[in-house]
Design a protein around this nucleic acid. Structure first.
Lengths: 129, 129
DNA sequence: CGGGATCCTGGTAGATACTG
DNA sequence: CAGTATCTACCAGGATCCCG
């Protein structure tokens, strides 16, 4: 990001951007959530997270590893074996994510219904006008 | 999103994607955080969130309103006055975001240091090789 | 003042092929 | 098995102009 000015200088909202930049992308939070259930091999992750490409899985894991949230362990057998696990810091973040999941569960219907009604009013405005 | 398969069918991780799709974009979480401090006029938001365009502010507010997280109040004076505030559901989400902010504050230095060391090792590998 | 409409760009992610 | 390399497409988001 690159937000300056009032809210950019506000340390609270700035940190919010930091953490969202970290886990707000398409796959990071999913990987974190999965690793929250325990260590996984590369291929296990690839199979578990359907739809992710090898490229994106690698990129995502590298990013999380770089930030110290995930640790990568190579066992140099043939064929090689690579395990990924959360670090202690990663585990605390995955707990925050679990909290977000609970929010989503509690408000799923409310949000769906809100959207339905909003779209309905929208449609009426177009038809009526 | 459009994730199917193992993790796509897992309701937990699926809901995680829902909520991240909602506040994981560039501005939504920032707007929610700001409105968490109290109602704001359109122009106040525009000035407070430096760097946001009118288009994106409008789009972001519409999205949050559609999801029932923000409420829009028009006072038909001349010139018109429009206020935005969090709904009760929006307030609960902003509390979750505050929790994420605390995580970021606690781990800011750790993440920065992790990155520095990761990049340093990277550089060594390239120079050494 | 508070937007809507339109056009355009850049970065993120997908597809595919190859490798130690 | 666990990646890397390359190429492409798509769309979130920015810039600009206009309007009630």
């Amino acid at each position: 990001m690159d937000v300056r000015g009032p809210i950019g200088r506000d340390s609270e909202t700035c940190q919010l951007r930091d953490v969202l930049d970290r886990v707000g992308d398409k796959w990071s939070a999913l990987v974190m959530a999965l690793l929250g259930q325990g260590p996984r091999r590369y291929s296990e992750l690839h199979r578990a997270i359907e739809g992710i490409s090898q490229r994106m899985l690698t990129l995502t894991l590298r990013g999380l590893e770089r930030d110290g949230l995930v640790i990568r362990t190579v066992t140099p057998t043939t064929p090689p074996r690579v395990d990924y696990a959360l670090t202690p810091a990663g585990r605390t973040l995955s707990i925050e994510l679990a909290s977000l999941i609970r929010w989503a569960e509690l408000h799923r219907e409310y949000v769906t219904e809100s959207r339905r009604r909003y779209d309905e009013r929208e449609a009426l405005l177009k038809t009526g006008a």
